[in-house]
């Protein structure tokens, strides 16, 4: 929708931003727990005690989305380092198209493990502890650039992008903006360079090389 200029801005995962960087302009990046970074979590059913990806071999695994960094790319890239693909490593995998649904799939026992956004998982621990209580974190990944707010490059010259960026960057200074940030469990928005997402691009390259 952004590329087709049907939307003026969007909160996008780092992976599609990297994939379409030439057509997208980085407006702002959320700051969560003091830094503009987040992690991908590998999770499994509670009480299993697994601590590494290797222990999840042969599982039925739930991914979030094929265009998600934390919900797919991080795990696929880690397997690619061992020259393995998810369809080989896992007995079966499927996409739930939502981080929340990944937690549901693992908590219900439909999947034995899953790849989920660490930020979403931490927020769910506060809002839906019964659901996350049926799961446990196998291991958090390295840190990646937090999913940014982006706009299509075609709109760069426009007033809208500038207004939107400034509104995001000033959000933490107004009570209404503070309320929104508290609801999202974020500290603020700030400007970051595209290099923040270089590690995601590396993972994408690794996966692409294997396939």
């Amino acid at each position: 929708m952004l590329i087709g200029s049907q939307a003026d801005g969007a909160w996008l995962c780092g992976f599609p931003y990297v994939q379409h960087r030439a057509q997208l302009e980085l407006l702002a990046v959320p700051v969560w727990r003091g830094q503009p970074l987040y992690q991908s979590y590998l999770i499994s059913t509670a009480g299993r005690g697994a601590t590494s990806l290797d222990q999840l071999r042969g599982d039925i695994h739930a991914f979030s989305d094929p265009d998600s960094n934390s919900g797919y790319l991080v795990t696929a890239a880690e397997l690619a380092r061992s020259e393995e693909r998810p369809d080989q490593f896992f007995k079966q995998s499927f996409f739930t198209y939502s981080h929340f649904n990944v937690v549901r799939a693992v908590a219900s026992g439909l999947a034995q493990s899953g790849s989920v956004d660490g930020y979403v998982y931490e927020v769910l621990k506060e809002t839906n502890p019964e659901l996350t209580g049926a799961t446990e974190i196998v291991r958090p990944s390295e840190w990646f650039g937090f999913p940014p707010i982006v706009a299509p490059t075609s709109a760069l010259a426009g007033e809208k992008s500038a207004v939107l960026r400034q509104a995001l960057l000033d959000m933490h200074t107004s009570p209404a903006g503070r309320l929104v940030l508290d609801m999202l469990r974020l500290d603020k928005f700030e400007s970051e360079p595209p290099a923040l997402f270089a590690s995601i691009e590396d993972n994408w390259d690794r996966v692409r090389e294997l396939s």
Binding site: F94, F95, T96, Y97, N101, R104, A105, S108, L110
Partner: peptide, 11 residues
């Protein structure tokens, strides 16, 4: 053969 959607519907 979408296991998740089948589960989601049943759930």
């Amino acid at each position: 053969r979408d296991s998740w959607e089948v589960f989601d519907i049943l759930d």
